[in-house]
Simulated scan of single mutants.
Amino acid sequence: MKSIWINPVLNKEIKLRFRSFKSFLGVFFYLLAIGGIAIGFILLNTIFSYSSTFIFRPEQSRTMFMVLSFVQMALVLFMTPGLTSGVISGERERQTLNILLTTPQSSTSIILSKLFSSIAYLLLMMIASLPLYSIVFLFGGVSPSLLFITFGLYLVTMLTIGSIGVLFSTIIRKTIVATIITYGITLFITAGTAFITLFAVQFISYQSANQTSVFPYITSMFNPFIILFNAFEEGMATEINRISGIEFPMTAAFIISFLLISFLCLFISIKKLRPDKKVKKGAA
């Protein structure tokens, strides 16, 4: 079990990703952008506002937290496919995959090491942004439990999208094709399910006020932005639960379904990493 989590593959990948000056430069500019958004939001609601009082109220602090959370979720959904969709196909294109497969490392160890080393950079960004959220706690309006829920949704999302990227990187030989497919699936999970959910809710409401359908619930529980918004405002989830007739919490459904997708993608990736060794009949 120890070899799965602590192994040469993981150590090499971590060192290659974090020794580069570009990695730390990326974190710097990311924190600069997030900090600029936070400070700009405060200035717009105090000094540059039409109000005569320069007080930043708790409800404004909560709104700023929502803005920062959605920006970070967009970052997770944008960066994760690019970091994970080439981890195996890139090795194949560099003709180093066969060498990697001859090492004592198991398929499970290789796949998990590639996945965790890829999302480790995103985790570094998430952790580095935590001090900026102290601005939110300074003005109030947000509980620590909401912060933990938000970062938990980040973690589940990046793990699932990363697992999808690793899957297509394993079964597709070309990195560019695997990247396009992974981004396409990510776009459908976000924009596609949001559009379908909105259309389904409007259609059901137009048909009959008492009509129910599970379709809006199914599409919305796969959308990270809808689930994240539900963590702040439960009115949308309540309406979808009413229309679908399902009382099960949407956030719990999101976590369970995404973890199952992640497990399935990793399981297939592990099985497909090494080619099948079929012994021909009559062979010595």
Rank of each mutant, 00 (worst) to 15 (best):
I255N: 05
I135D: 03
G235H: 14
T63C: 10
F21I: 11
S262D: 04
L44M: 13
L147H: 05
F225I: 08
A194Q: 08
L115S: 00
I39Y: 13
I189L: 13
S113P: 04
S89M: 10
Y206V: 13
I111T: 00
M125E: 08
L44R: 11
M79G: 03
G165R: 01
V76I: 12
P81Q: 05
S52M: 15
P224H: 06
F215A: 08
M221P: 00
G184P: 02
L25Q: 09
L32V: 08
L147E: 03
A120T: 02
K15H: 10
F41D: 04
A194W: 09
I189P: 01
Y133H: 08
S244L: 07
G152P: 08
N210R: 14
S143L: 11
R62N: 10
I4F: 04
V177H: 09
F116N: 03
N223T: 06
T212M: 11
F139H: 10
T170I: 02
A283Y: 13
T197K: 07
I171V: 10
L123R: 06
Y217I: 01
L97H: 04
A237G: 09
S134R: 10
T102Q: 07
I149E: 05
F139S: 04
T238N: 14
I6P: 03
A74Q: 15
T182H: 03
I218H: 02
P249V: 11
L25W: 12
A237R: 07
A252M: 15
F70V: 09
L43F: 14
N45C: 13
F151Y: 12
F21M: 12
I34D: 05
E247C: 11
I14M: 13
I39H: 14
N230P: 06
A209T: 12
F263W: 09
V279F: 14
F258K: 05
L10Q: 04
K272Y: 03
K2D: 06
A253Q: 03
A200M: 06
I127T: 06
I270N: 00
S52A: 15
V156T: 07
N45Y: 14
F21Q: 12
T150V: 10
I34H: 04
G282D: 03
S262M: 06
I110H: 01
Y133K: 06
Q207K: 13
Y133D: 02
P249E: 07
F78N: 10
I149F: 11
I99R: 12
M66V: 14
F168L: 05
M73L: 09
Q207D: 13
L16K: 15
G162R: 07
L273P: 00
L101P: 01
S113H: 05
E91F: 03
N98C: 11
F195S: 13
V166R: 00
F232G: 00
G26Y: 07
E239C: 14
G140S: 08
T96D: 03
S244I: 02
I189R: 04
F232D: 02
V166I: 08
Q60A: 13
T219F: 07
S113I: 01
F229K: 12
V67R: 08
T212V: 10
F168E: 00
L155E: 04
V27I: 07
I149P: 00
A38I: 10
S49C: 09
E234A: 14
S61G: 11
I110Q: 00
M66D: 04
L32H: 04
Y30T: 02
L260F: 12
M221T: 05
I172T: 00
T46E: 05
K22W: 12
